[in-house]
Amino acid sequence: MNVLIAFYSRTGYTKELALIIAEELVSKGHEVELEKIEPVKEDNMWPLLWRTQWYWGALALGILSNRYREYFISNYRIPEVDIKPLAHPDVSKYDRVCIGCGKQTIVPCAIEAYLRQVKGLKGKKVGGFATWAGPPLKHFEVEHLFRPIADRLERRGASLVSIVGLSSRYHEYHNQMLNIFEFLSRVRYGKPISYFSVHSDYGRQHIKLFCDELVKGTTDIKDSRGWRRSFQGTGILGVASASPWTTLERMRTRFEKKVLDKA
């Protein structure tokens, strides 16, 4: 199978993941070509953070209301940037296309520009891979990054058939951010972030699964176990995957079932 791996990496962590995926595919006998997406001008970390300021308030609101969060995830706009000319502007000759990036609060602008420019996506089965700092939280990481990508692909007649998101354990904005993610990871999954990193067992397993599902191409990520696969885990139910209201509801029904019914 002929696969194109297109990736945008700012600090190199996603590039490493792209290499691991490429090697996995090559070892299975597939042919891999690469597309390195680069913005014409790479911003410094602070202007970059400034550009995403509009989303923080919305993210906070999303914790309170599921409906708002869903609206926000499927409607947020990504600012435009210019990217360097592509080596493979037409992807129609590939059987599969993979698109990879690091999470930058939102989908990186360079990826948005790539999806707008690239031709021949119609009917293509696409895989999405990413690195982020935190654990694979369902809404904040997985859906927040892959849903807009899935929507955009769908508009161009392509479908997202496989995803993988792993932790790079690196955050440009200092350790404090990582500490917050570490805390969330322990609360939600009962595991440290290193459990979800690129080089962990979890990472290796999921990269393999990603490649298998990509080649198979039968999963529809948008409405299936595809989402779920990335965030299964133990830990306190509901935290970081539902609004406080839903969590309270669930706690109430559990309480009724387990305590009141027995009494």
Partner: peptide, 16 residues
């Protein structure tokens, strides 16, 4: 988009 073909980025480049 201009049709300028840029040099392909190969697996070896990526490894390096």
């Amino acid at each position: 988009m201009k049709d300028t073909q840029t040099k392909p980025f190969t697996l070896d480049d990526l490894k390096k």
